[in-house]
Amino acid sequence: MMSDLVRQHFHEPCFIGILPAGPKVIRVEIDSPATSRHIIFSIEVEQSRIVQARHLVRGCPYTIATFSYLANWCYGQMLVNLTSMTRAFLIDQLSLPATKVHCAAMAEDTLRQLYLQWENT
């Protein structure tokens, strides 16, 4: 049974789209044909703060909800905070069932990758 928050983000996902490539934009893409998941998550950073976040997502309702929640959460966050977001927090916030905890794992991994990409540029 979906939590109210999952239901909300699934039916009305936030910040849909893709940021055009640029010096302040970093983008992570996850494409897993075996699981039918495909996510493109992009953020724009100014003075170490995330000023824009966008995402496109194909996946189950929990995948859609998780990344919508994530995009919403990213807004205004300091870049360094990306590494503080944990799957445990997401599982708790979204009341993810045991069969869907991988959505939170993917989200945590996405944020780590975004941070590492920024660090390496």
Binding site: F10, T35, R37, R58, G59, C60, A98, V101
Partner: peptide
Amino acid sequence: DAEALLAGLPRLAMSTTSACNS
């Protein structure tokens, strides 16, 4: 994703014979 489609149509009782979980 078929699971997403079915979740978005709660007033239609259909099925998907595939599923993805952890």
